[in-house]
Each structure stands twice: as structure tokens, then as C-alpha cells.
Design a protein around this nucleic acid. Structure first.
Lengths: 288, 288
DNA sequence: ATTCATTAATGTAATATAAACATTAGTTCA
DNA sequence: TGAACTAATGTTTATATTACATTAATGAAT
């Protein structure tokens, strides 16, 4: 059984048309027809019901389509990761991080990695909160920096920095310091807040902040991108609660009012990873 | 890339010897050598470091060994399940159940399935508590009857019966009814108990029972097999707490003292399963 | 009805791949 | 130094896969 055959099957299962599939896969229709037949013969399972006119998945075919799609996709990432292990110091590692620390934690960390491994490629990506674990587990990313601890059987998590929440206001705003924040002054504000991620400790922290002031925030705008939130604050569309790290972006026109609410940053990685460079990078980051 | 090649790789990764592997796989050493080379070429990854004397996995090879082992194994079960879907009513479904209900719930349930699907094969297996979810998820079993609710995103769970705990004593034992059970009488007993499954509600229930009598049971023997426990009770090695269902096994020489502790039985299955017969069997069981 | 377009399967020949067998070239150990 | 071992490779043969052309069945259009 050939992985190529399974890929042909998956495209045919989508197209349900031998000619179109043959075109998409750059083989002739006859070759495709025979490959599918060979696959069916070897499996002992009829995958399609076909007459001279129509092609349709059988129940067993539908089942295998769903399973194979997932597996083949996972396989590709495994193979890519194996290549990166082989490339070692001249390969690529992929780091997911929150935008908030782009100008604070990241630059230092990256320059220390880069000077230790000058030929190493580093890809920086942002991954949605709910995808972080899956991406790490399936080798779509190698390291994830989060504001939540993620320790599970197969993911290790360690705190690497602490940060605080700040109220972010435009320069022209009356709020100058923490003393200006009361239930009364906050109640009259419009807030731009992050999209609430259930179960995220960062979300919880913001909830906690408002509860402390006994305020239900008037939040009419939500965004998961801090930089978008900052732009909106600057334009006077509301005020926001963001990690203090954003201050290092040095955006003109806004003011940060630091609050005593701590939000830790964690580094997350797969336990027992075989990537030797990745393991060394890990040591490098955690040792500091 | 061929699945057969990956299987060759996995055996070679275990044997680390081309001749032995060739023998085990029933091909010649030259064929094996070239298959591994082809695999390495197509992947773009060197899997083994080899000289004229030794064969050794590379880091990338070690990584792929671990991942492929899992994936290929999962694939085999998917293919087998696809064949069972195709076989339909003349295929096989695999049901895992606790031994306790072998003589009570199971006979009725099985005869109703068997009369509705006379050509259907049914395999009965026992699966350890901690493997139940994984076996169901990976198509190693099709239905699981448990004493715990298992509802997750991909597993449905529904109560199908209730059962009670009983104290099981040999015929010669002084305990005759619930009234004989007190902290004092229980403290002097030796108990044969199930192996404690952390987080299992059945385990919890037994704990709860002893707590109600303020007793820390003197349990020197543990077994996960109820039938073994019954044999031991019969021989006078101790008394036990078991589901009342075991009474239907009608083992002579022992006595059941029913307790007012309820332990529900749940049927668990994969949501969105494509097996048409399995879905019908499910309806059949749940409708009663 | 008849014709035409569509489409999956198949016969055939050319090509590519994979196998067994025999041999080679290092390596280890006595 | 030679024997045993072992992975790789050259060679030949068998098998599998491809492209091309054709077939057979179906449905739509006239």
C-alpha cells in the first residue's frame, strides 16, 4: 500500500470524478483508475461505488477518508520534523509567541539564540490559544510561549518571565495613575478587550481585575490582536487592558498605567523531543 | 513512499541487522537494503548510520521510529474497521464489558442483538479501566460497558442499567444480613478488594462504603478479576465487595449481602461512527 | 429515435521498479 | 594473515505502472 495511492484516494474522494482527479494529480485517468483498484484490492475494501456515470464513496470509504486525511496530514509534519532534526543547526525551529512580548522578551531571547546558533533558522508564528497544544503535539511548532501553564503528560511548561497588566489610554485621557481608577471612573469607560478564551488564565486575570473594582466593563469591541487594540485606543475608540510588555513597542500617542496584576509567561515544549538543537535552545532559554 | 517500506524500517530499527531483518521479512538482504535506501531518498532523511559492520538509528530515524510505530499500528485498526463496515451484518463487532455482568445484563443483551442480526459476529473482551477510552477511540473495540460515565467530545455515554454493591462472604460466614455489618464486625474482617483505579467512580463508591462505616479495610489481597475474587472468598481467604450482578453467576458456596450502594452501568460508543450495523445495534440496546 | 458528449474501465506496449542471485569491499577477530 | 561477517551493488529477470487508444455504458440534446 502506497502513501501516494492514499493521496490519490483523498483527492478522488473530494472530486468524485476520475478525470478531474487525474488532471489534479498529473497522471492519466487510466493510471488513476488502476491505482484505486489496486488500493481497494490490497485493503479488501471497496472504497467507491461507481457506474459508468457516477462516483460515490462507500461507508467504508467515507470512514477511511476521514481517518486517512488526519493521518496523512500528521505524517507530513513528522517527516518535515525529521528533516529538521537532520539539518540540525542549519535547520529551522518554529516558535509561537504572543504579540505582547514582540518588543520585550523576544528580541533578547532571539538574539541569544541567534548568536549561539548563527546558521539556525527561526520562524516566528502566532497560534490561537485553543490550537497551541495541538500544534505543539503534532510538530507544527516547536516552542510555544504562553501566558498559561500547559503541563500535560507530553508537554512541559516552565515559567520564564513575569509581566503585569496595564490600563492603556490615549495621551489625551484623564487617567494618569492607578489612583484615578475607581468603580465610578471605570464604569463610564468604553473598553476594548481581548476575545475571551474560556479557561485561559490570562482571561481569568482580566475578569479578576474588573471584579476587584466591582465593575462590569462596557466592552463593545473585542480583538485577539494587541496591536489592533493599541491602534484603536490611540484613535480614541476606547481604553484597554493589556500586558505591560506592549509598552516596549513604544507606540506614540498612548499611555500605560501599570497595575499590580501579575501575568506570568511560560515556555512550553514537547517532553522527550529528539531535536538536538531544540534541546540545546531550550537549555539556553531556561538557563538565563 | 510505501507502507511496506515503513514496516521494513520498523523491523530493521528493532533488529539493527540487515540479514536478520531480511529473514524476518522474507525478502533478501539486497532487496531490503534497497528499500531502505529508497525510503531514505524519498524522505530526504538518513535513517540509519551504517558501516560495513554496524547499523544504528540516527536521531531523525529514532524520531520517525516512534511516530511511525504508533501511526502504522493505528492504520491497521482503521483498515480492519473499514473491512468490518463493508461486511456489515456478517461482520464482527467487539464489545468490552465488566465480568460482573457476564451472567446478568450480557446474556439478554446479546440474545437480542443475535436475534436481530443472526449473521453478526460478536467478540466479547475485557479491557482495563485505563485503556477503555483509547481502545474505543482507536477502533480496537466498538462498544464498552463501564461503571463510569465516559462522555468526551468523541465518546458518547448513556446509562443502560443500575446495579448495587454486595458484601460477598463464604456460606459458613457469620454475616447474614446488612444488620450484621458494623464498624466492629467489619474491622475484624480480611478483605479481598479490586485494584484501586484512581478516578474510577466504582472505586470511589467502595471507598465511600467503608467511609460510611468508618472502617479502613484490612485488604491484603487485590485482584481486578471478580471471578478470581469469588474463588478466593469461597476458599475462605477473606470477604469481598462486588457488584450484586455477580450473584447471577450462581456460584455455590458463597452468599451475597446486598447493600444500598448503587453503581450504574453505562454504554459507551464513538460519536459519529460510520458502521451502519453498529449504529443499529446501538439503537437496539438503548431502546429497550 | 438518434446522435453526441461524458466517463470509468481495459487491452496493449513501453517503461520503470523491485526482486533474487552472485559478488564485492570493508571490518573484526582469532 | 586468513576466516567470518555484513552492507552495498552489478546483473538479470520478473513484476508493476504508465500512457495511449479504445470500449462500453449512460444521459442529454435534437
Amino acid at each position: 500500500m502506497n502513501i501516494q495511492q492514499i493521496k490519490y484516494f483523498l483527492i478522488l474522494a473530494q472530486e468524485l470524478h476520475f478525470w478531474k482527479t487525474a488532471e489534479r494529480t498529473h497522471i492519466t485517468q487510466s493510471a488513476l483508475s488502476r491505482q484505486i483498484q489496486a488500493l481497494e484490492r490490497e485493503l479488501g475494501v471497496q472504497l467507491f461505488e461507481r457506474d459508468k456515470r457516477n462516483v460515490k464513496l462507500t461507508s467504508a470509504g467515507q470512514f477511511l477518508k476521514e481517518k486517512w486525511e488526519v493521518q496523512i496530514n500528521e505524517l507530513e509534519f513528522f517527516h518535515e520534523h525529521a528533516r529538521q532534526i537532520q539539518l540540525g543547526e542549519s535547520g529551522t525551529i518554529i516558535i509561537a509567541h504572543p504579540d505582547s512580548i514582540s518588543a520585550s522578551l523576544m528580541p533578547d531571547m532571539l538574539s541569544s539564540i541567534a548568536s549561539a546558533y548563527p546558521k539556525l533558522n527561526i520562524e516566528l508564528v502566532q497560534v490561537r490559544y485553543e490550537d497551541q497544544q495541538e500544534f505543539l503535539r503534532n510538530y507544527k511548532v516547536d516552542l510555544v510561549i504562553t501566558r498559561d501553564i500547559n503541563k500535560t503528560d507530553d508537554i512541559s511548561s516552565e515559567q520564564i518571565a513575569t509581566d503585569y497588566l496595564s490600563i492603556v489610554v490615549p495621551d489625551s485621557h484623564p487617567f494618569q495613575s492607578v489612583e484615578d481608577l475607581t468603580k465610578e471612573t471605570l464604569d463610564s469607560q468604553k473598553f476594548i478587550l481581548p476575545i475571551k478564551d474560556e479557561g485561559s488564565s490570562y482571561s481569568d486575570l482580566i475578569q479578576q481585575l474588573f471584579r476587584a473594582y466591582n465593575v462590569v466593563p462596557n466592552a463593545y469591541l473585542h480583538s485577539e490582536f494587541g496591536s489592533a487594540i493599541i491602534s484603536l485606543v490611540k484613535k480614541g475608540l476606547g481604553i484597554a487592558v493589556l500586558p505591560t510588555s506592549y509598552m516596549w513597542h513604544e507606540t506614540p500617542g498612548i499611555r500605560f498605567i501599570a497595575l499590580p496584576y501579575q501575568t506570568d509567561l511560560f515556555l512550553n515544549w514537547r517532553v522527550n523531543d529528539h531535536h538536538p538543537v531544540l534541546n540545546n535552545v531550550l537549555k539556553l532559554i531556561l538557563k538565563r
